[in-house]
């Protein structure tokens, strides 16, 4: 399917199909005029920022008129951002807390052969697992229940946490959440794995219930044998995990006893292979702009739709702009 994303197609989408009400409900009505937007426009793909709008009509007018290739939403400031009042010079007010999970973050541990923006059903499950894990952690550990997952338009997903209190968080508070979730360090080089500390019980239980489950149900007995488990025992473990509908840390503890030498090695391997990998820069930077929900991805023509059921979502299940216009 070699379709060209023409200015006409783009404008038509924003004029007729862009779900304005849903978008407004998503980012909230208050202070709309003080919110920063950014766009990729024109033949030379110029990236423009420090733009704000009186209301959504004005925003859509701009997007239609300029046939914007990519659209981004930023933070809310105390005055409307503009060329004369760029965001560096005005006071920052608040910003959603955003997770960015991209399949290419897993390049070092993908075994299916995919690299970069490529994906298949097998490696995409890493993104699905990460989404479920983070979603649960944000709800159960941090008490944030207003979370929406948006397709990034190409190879990943964005989690928008919108509770008012988190939107006001400063950098230290945002980093605290990231650090709490981080077990893999120095992603590009040493891949060193933290031990799971005793106080992180909810996190540890979740690692065994979710991450270990998907690791163990996909592994071969031979590979598991390399950790010092007999092949027969390995086969048994795998079968039990595959057949378990309510696998949890208690079951993990029974299968892989806590004091065994195997356990420590296996736990780090599980984290290394399947634990969520988050792009920290995106979450930490409160001035960053993120892809506008329901907008078109300029390279793929896919729509950044809301993901209701990540377990059944694949990048090709997101509609393209051409489908939307049909």
């Amino acid at each position: 399917m070699e379709k060209k994303l023409t200015p006409e197609v783009i404008s038509a989408y924003y004029e007729k199909k862009f779900p304005v009400e849903r978008f407004m409900a998503f980012i909230g009505l208050s202070n709309f005029k003080n919110r920063e937007f950014g766009f990729v426009v024109g033949e030379h793909n110029r990236f423009v920022r420090n733009i704000s709008f009186q209301n959504t009509e004005k925003m859509l007018e701009f997007m239609v008129k300029n046939s914007v290739k990519d659209a981004y939403v930023g933070a809310v400031f105390d005055t409307p951002p503009s060329k004369e009042h760029p965001i560096q010079k005005i006071k920052w007010n608040y910003r959603e807390f955003i997770y960015d999970i991209d399949i290419d973050e897993y390049d070092l541990v993908r075994t299916c052969g995919c690299q970069g923006a490529q994906y298949c059903k097998e490696c995409w499950s890493l993104v699905q697992d990460a989404t479920v894990f983070i979603d649960k952690t944000m709800r159960e550990d941090f008490g944030f229940h207003d979370i929406i997952w948006i397709f990034s338009g190409r190879r990943g997903v964005h989690g928008w946490v919108r509770n008012p209190i988190i939107q006001k968080f400063d950098k230290n508070q945002r980093v605290a959440i990231l650090d709490y979730l981080t077990f893999i360090h120095d992603e590009k080089r040493s891949q060193s794995i933290d031990e799971i500390p005793n106080e992180s019980k909810p996190l540890r239980n979740r690692i065994y219930a979710l991450t270990a489950k998907s690791y163990l149900e996909k592994i071969t007995p031979k590979k598991l044998h390399e950790f010092g488990i007999s092949v027969n025992k390995a086969k048994d473990i795998i079968k039990q995990v595959q057949n378990s509908d309510d696998f949890d840390h208690t079951k993990y503890n029974i299968l892989i006893p806590n004091d065994s030498a195997v356990r420590k090695k296996l736990s780090s391997e599980i984290i290394l292979r399947r634990y969520p990998r988050i792009d920290r820069k995106v979450t930490m930077d409160t001035n960053r702009v993120s892809r506008m929900p329901y907008s078109i991805h300029g390279k793929t023509g896919q729509i950044a739709i809301e993901i209701k059921d990540i377990k059944n979502f694949y990048p090709d299940s997101a509609p393209t702009v051409w489908e939307a216009l049909m």
Binding site: F144, N172, A176, E199
Partner: peptide
Amino acid sequence: HKIPKVVGAKKALLYQG
């Protein structure tokens, strides 16, 4: 969020915030 350092160091057991 009042004790970000402690949370970041994974020294807090977190429950509903």
